[in-house]
């Protein structure tokens, strides 16, 4: 995999994260799926996953950029594992509604584990790091669009906790949009 192909792969990853952030925000506003603190933290960590790909697109692929995303994915997997364990007892209905049989936090755990595996697999391709000292070419419109889309959606998500609860901290289990 060349550095150009790696940049394209990073742009695709950003589009994936943008889709996920948009879906979570839409579920909150349209389906009234109120996020609890752990749910918000998982959404925040999905957004934080985007810093590595943005740096890869701007400065060229580097192992340190992938390491940032790996650290975030491990923390995200820990947070979603905690939430899965909170609802592990038999008879517990879980929090929120299920999608294809799994609750959103279970999907988040699957997503973070998939991110760890994909990041590790991407690090196997050494040729993408060969041109690290060369001048990095300006990213194309596809990559620029991915970066601005994920920045825009993260900025939009600033309103997410405010819409739910205003300025006070979110309750453990929110009961309405106005708390």
């Amino acid at each position: 995999m060349t550095d150009t192909q790696a940049v394209t792969l990073n742009a695709l990853a950003l589009y994936g994260l943008a889709l996920l952030l948009a879906a979570a925000f839409a579920a909150q506003l349209l389906l009234h799926e109120l996020p609890c603190p752990l749910c918000l933290l998982q959404r925040i960590l999905f957004a934080l996953l985007a810093i590595g790909p943005i740096l890869n697109i701007r400065f060229g692929p580097r192992p340190s950029h992938y390491a940032l995303s790996l650290l975030t994915a491990v923390l995200g997997a820990s947070v979603s594992t905690r939430q899965v364990l909170l609802h592990i007892l038999p008879g517990d209905a879980g929090y929120g509604s299920a999608l294809l049989g799994y609750h959103y936090y279970t999907w988040a755990l699957i997503g973070f584990i998939a991110a760890i595996v994909l990041l590790a697999a991407t690090l196997l391709f050494d040729r993408q790091f060969d041109h690290r000292t060369a001048q990095v070419t300006a990213p194309g419109k596809f990559a620029q669009g991915a970066v601005w889309l994920v920045i825009g959606l993260t900025a939009l998500n600033v309103a997410s906790p405010l819409l739910e609860c205003g300025l006070p901290p979110a309750p453990t289990i929110p009961s309405s949009m106005s708390c």
Binding site: I44, A47, I51, I54, I151, P161, L167
Partner: peptide, 19 residues
């Protein structure tokens, strides 16, 4: 409140990473 601050901080970090 802390979640709003975190989302805002990530937006700023993304802008710094890009520019």
């Amino acid at each position: 409140m802390e979640f709003t601050a975190l989302f805002l901080a990530i937006t700023i970090a993304m802008l710094v990473a890009w520019r």
